[in-house]
Amino acid sequence: MTDKQSMHIDPYEKNWIRLSIGLLVVFATAVTVAGFAFGFQVPTPEDRVDPRTVATEGPWADPGLRELVPGKKYEAYILAQTWAFLPNEITVPVGAEVTFYVTSKDVQHGFKLQDTNINMQIVPGQVSKLTVTFDEPGVHNFICTEYCGAAHAIMFGTLTVE
């Protein structure tokens, strides 16, 4: 009896397992290369703040765009709160590389800049950071993608590239 107790795997199933593993390896490689070689990255811890004072002290007391290298490099400090982004209008020149630093002073929000890969959870006490470069003129909405209370649906802003 015991000699029969080996795991019986059908040859077709063996091939299927090989194919599945192969496929996952290909996907994993594609994702890893895009992430770590090209810079399609997800947020990573940047800084922590006190949500009770963030609107009155530090960079988010005066949220908005900072010009680091004119025409080239910018930082955008954005404060999310119920139910608006501060500021809710931003204008940058074509070719600008903009790094977003977003935090919330009340509940969780989302920050998704349409037609780019900027998509972040905004968590009170944490700073969400990602960077984007604008090569073409146009208007991008940034919308709140996490339920944040009664008027969540109207929470958005616009970024203009000109």
């Binding site: 994993a28 947020p43 990573t44 959870q121 944490q126």
Partner: peptide, 29 residues
């Protein structure tokens, strides 16, 4: 897309998530 979890740990969980796809592929077969 959480700000407070290091990207490296997210990547490790991505790999583990890929591995839990296998028992579902077995199930399909």
């Amino acid at each position: 897309v959480d700000p407070g979890v290091p990207a490296g740990w997210k990547f490790l969980h991505a790999v583990l998530t890929y591995s839990v796809f296998l028992p579902s592929m077995l199930t399909a077969f």
